[in-house]
Amino acid sequence: MADIILETTGLSMRFGGVTAVDNVDFQLREKELRCLIGPNGAGKSTFFKCLTGILKPSAGEVFLDDQETTGWDPHRVAGLGIGIKTQVPSVMDGLSVHENIWLSARRRSSVAEANRKTGEVIDRINLGGLAYKELGQLAHGERQRVELGIVMAGNPWLILLDEPAAGMTGEEVEHMSDIIRELNRNAAVIIVEHDMQFIRSIASKVTVFYRGAVLMEDDVSVVLSDPTVRDVYLGKKA
């Protein structure tokens, strides 16, 4: 199956007695857009961290683009061409918007190319007027956009976004879904999100996490009308 670009088999992550990710088999096709949902503490962020190498899984394997990458360091995983937005915004507050994005662009291209790409990305995320402002002085939503810009600038073929819409205004969310759809033309995307409105708007296949394991995986309409999923979200026992 050549067009599977991400696969995990029996992936597990335990912290002492807590099993945060429990025996997850997951597959993602080229240029697919996938939403990951599930209540707080379901293990979505931990699953991401195992994919990106921030955490070393306790068991199971990760394959990216037909290579096994289990236990790789984050910079090696990212170097393959994977863009990552963590749940807690991770940006360089003491540097300018331009510098933040330029550094990402520079990783896999020449200085001239990085300069060009940086301008392009800053325009795309509508931060042209703030390009040389220090990030620490920007509003929360603007910083989220910069982090998305950092991801875009790396020209990734796989993008992992952990709650990218958190704390954004409705308008900002809309702008961001446009960007995500655009990115999706050249890259596969996995998004962790709680906002059902948002998930519906980018309509795609949804994977539901519950207590570290995959509860179900189906089209957005099927999943959202499923009684078990609703129970899980309302906190009842599945």
């Binding site: 990106t52 910079h75 963590t86 896999r108």
Partner: peptide, 19 residues
């Protein structure tokens, strides 16, 4: 420039793919 970035946020620089 990457050295300065590491001072600012090591994890982010790693996630950009720099060793």
């Amino acid at each position: 420039r990457t050295a300065i970035a590491i001072r600012e946020n090591e994890e982010r620089v790693e996630l950009m793919g720099y060793d």
